[in-house]
Design a protein around this nucleic acid. Structure first.
Lengths: 330, 330
DNA sequence: ACAAGATATGAAATCGATTTCATAATAAGA
DNA sequence: TCTTATTATGAAATCGATTTCATATCTTGT
């Protein structure tokens, strides 16, 4: 079904049908006739043809590193909620942590004439900046702070500091660190800084040899813990950059019959479902992931409406979830 | 940048540029010239214009009830893997369990001229059948068995039967059932049937008053367990239709100091991450979700290539993961 | 040397919508 | 009554690609 066929059936020009669809001048008489024909045929205009003519695709691209991740899928749920309310469609690119694919999709999306892009990122490189700057449509980065485009991120620094301080206040002095690569500014660098700042403000010396790096998986947390443990260093607390790392570490400690929280206290970040189910439950920070997705979508839609694109930054707060893993023994 | 501008810069017709892009007749001389211009300008053809002319949008629509679900996001990861290999883009619709939205998106996708649709469904109604039949492009249903379009699903019946049998073989006689609505053919009806069949084959009478219904959430599992417990019925085993339900139920039992697996054994389905982390670890069935996504995508791409659309069905196996929640006490 | 096929090219039509343009008819204001 | 807006309408141009068509040149095989 095309607009021309509808026009013929209704005995009008296709321009009239188009006006009917877009609230242009049209007499009541023809309006009725066209309405009737459209309902009968179930006609729906081709979005491609519309986009070609109007340059409004009603498409928003989302680039993300891994869809089957609890935090990321929550962000997407938030984005989707807002966009669907506003009649936008989502083009999804799952890049599987490949920088090449990220860059590739950022430009594939241009071919699709997306009106804007939401980029959920872990590592951001010079190439990202370059391509984002020249991309022609608004880009909102979620989860990382950047200065060359609008972004929305969490207060990783403060959350890490406060979590570490909980253990310090509980009398812990030998607090180890298991983090992710500092190339990841948010989950890597900022969280490490927060941890270090907490130590510093309590005049505790940071010790390089109880600070280690893993990746985002439980297995890596397990391995990192194993290495720490086998090094023989005295440890009475562990700051982990994510819940998963913490849970991996806890698994190892349980195997070694180390008591949590009596012997070692431990914290994570993310407030994943697991954190409240594992025994003992894990002290962590709740980040508003779904909200950050909603905010990102709203931010993008605002950018689309405004004529001059002002770069904006939103820093979201968090909530400390104190659970058993940092409960002081009485 | 349009093809006409490229043509002008290269001193050829736009037809020549198009032929260059689509491997048509073109002399080496012009080929070089065009290549050079395209590289300089970074030109990429408009997919809308291409679609309008060729009817090939390279778009596949995915309709799903909830993106921030472990199982569903794993399916999507599988789909995405295959589609991106083949140069297809994903249009995503998160319907938040609303049937209206499902039906709406199935037809919105038509406007977008998607070449095919993958439909991850929980409840399927007559309306779905009607709309899927008239939709004009191939539709693959994931997670439910239907006869009016191609589908791919798990052996819910057998998995449930085997899980229940584990508890029976462990000497359990009073096995309760906490499931989801039987309107959901797969997770509701088939799993219930499997549970009942296991009882039957061991000549154990099914008791209506220890069979209850909840939804997919942990909270609902908790509440259902509470009701069962407070009813005072003797129970020494529980079949739960999903891991989450089981975990909710376990939470309640722990609060009541009921020992798992000594007093009550329990099983779930899905092999979520949680199932291996909770204490005690949960016996469950591993379904190949990511694989099912991959298979669905491949199925769809095959349908696109074939001229006659043969309806196909794939039933996937599973793996029983026996863990502590059904470990017999020695 | 000549017909037949392969190679090469651009003008113009096409896909399905919106929008401009030209033109009427009607309503409102002076 | 005579402008001047406002409302209505369809033909044709337009968006940016591909494809058909007509035509020209170059190889081959005979």
């Amino acid at each position: 079904m095309t607009i021309a066929e509808i026009a013929k059936l209704a005995g009008v020009s296709s321009a009239a049908v188009s006006r009917y669809l877009n609230n242009g001048y049209i007499s009541d008489e023809k309006k009725q006739k066209i309405k009737q024909v459209i309902e009968q045929t179930g006609y729906r205009p081709s979005l491609q043809a519309q986009t070609l003519r109007t340059k409004k695709s009603k498409l928003i691209g989302i680039v993300l590193p891994k869809i089957n991740s609890e935090t990321i899928s929550r962000i997407v749920a938030g984005i989707s909620l807002i966009l669907s309310e506003q009649g936008f469609q989502i083009l999804l690119a799952n890049t599987e942590n490949s920088v090449e694919k990220e860059l590739e999709y950022l430009s594939v999306f241009q071919n699709n004439n997306v009106e804007g892009i939401i980029f959920i990122a872990t590592l951001l490189r010079k190439e990202h900046e370059k391509i984002i700057k020249q991309i022609g449509v608004p880009v909102v980065v979620v989860g990382q702070k950047v200065n060359y485009t609008s972004c929305i991120y969490h207060n990783d620094f403060l959350a890490s500091k406060e979590l570490t301080e909980i253990m310090i206040c509980n009398g812990r002095k030998q607090i180890a660190y298991i983090g992710v690569t500092t190339k990841d500014k948010a989950a890597g660098l900022e969280r490490k800084k927060g941890y270090l700042e907490a130590l510093k403000s309590y005049h505790i010396a940071a010790e390089q040899d109880i600070m280690t790096e893993s990746d985002f998986s439980m297995e890596a947390g397990y391995d990192a813990m194993k290495k720490l443990f086998e090094s023989g260093k005295k440890i009475d607390g562990i700051f982990c950059a994510t819940d998963f790392i913490a849970i991996g570490a806890m698994k190892y400690l349980k195997e070694k019959k180390v008591n949590i929280p009596n012997d070692i206290q431990i914290v994570g970040i993310g407030h994943t479902k697991l954190s409240s189910i594992i025994t003992p439950t894990l002290t962590t920070a709740h980040f508003y992931y779904k909200t950050s997705g909603q905010d990102a979508a709203e931010m993008l839609l605002t950018l689309l409406k405004e004529e001059k694109k002002v770069i904006k930054e939103i820093k979201l707060g968090f909530e400390i979830i104190e659970q058993e893993s940092t409960q002081n023994n009485k």
